[in-house]
Amino acid sequence: LQEVPGPCDHEDLLDGVIFGAKYLGSTQLVSERNPPPSTRMAQAREAMDRVKAPEGETQPMTEVDLFVSTKRVKVLTADSQEAMMDHALQTISYIADIGNVLVLMARRRLARRPAPQAHSRQLYRMICHVFHSEDAQLIAQAIGQAFSVAYRQFLRESGIDPSQVGAQQSLGATGPGHLHNGDLDHFSNSENCREVCIEKRRGEGLGVALVESGWGSLLPTAVIANLLHGGPAERSGALSIGDRLTAINGTSLVGLPLAACQAAVREVKSQTLVTLSIIHCPPVTTAIIRRPHAREQLGFCVEDGIICSLLRGGIAERGGVRVGHRIIEINGHSVVATPHARIIELLTEAHVEVHIKTMPAATYRLLTGQEQPVYL
């Protein structure tokens, strides 16, 4: 079984893991079948506001155990272990964490049969359970991991290789070659896509420095290269260096030049609440180049450790090599302080499966203090 990133051991999730939490209460909402992220965020906040006692008032709460597995999520009373709630995993629509609050949204049943009118939408009654825990984010990540493991299992049972889902979709764009790097799989996994709400003072910048994802990137958009210490973005705790910024307040940044992405971030300066759509990515990406023989062309050019051009559809591009990225490692050996000639030598000799770790050169310059970040 392929490992799915998250806080839990894969095997443990099959059997079920337990987290302690305080149950604050439940409420119901009516929702369409697959609402957009902004609607889901409003729903989660609405559920929290309805259940949470106002500041200064006593909050009724019950100690519970949350049982999470790839089959179900159960809420058990902490003392008697009696099941208060039990939801099959496929009926859970989404999980949200807001600070120390966790909101679980489960679909109950069709609230209204679809009307014959063309524009009618199926409506669902959602039951929303609200919990408090210092580990709200961790629990949300564990439930997200259970979603992902269950989904992969579902694909496998349907005769689809989960690792091939992304590769099959990519055929039109890159020809019949296979993609070896995990980018597509990573980008198409909804677990990695997040909607983050950042609260800030009016006139205050978000406190992010942006760079380009690099020519050849499967998701051409701005990448977070640095976070201003103490700035709204860092304070939110939800962003990290390497994350792709795909939209701001619902406006897509994908495919736009860096200057346009920066302008879009500057534009929200006057607002007090900003919604960012991000795809969480590590700052360093790994490209895997399958090169059966050392005589086969690698398909990219390097200048002082930085990739400066790429052969479209070549083995390097398919493996995840991106223009404008600095090579950090080749087959596990750091090359950050290696002379250009030696890097070329290492690349020329490397064959069979070449693992190359890279990061945007601009991010590297910021992280190593060679350049001062311009925070937006």
């Binding site: 965020m41 906040r45 069709l110 579902f154 997040r194 909607e195």
Partner: peptide, 21 residues
Amino acid sequence: SALTITVNPMEKHEEPGHGEE
């Protein structure tokens, strides 16, 4: 505070109308 949402990919595959009651 920051709000993070993780959508269940199984949501799209569930039969319409099916759910817990």
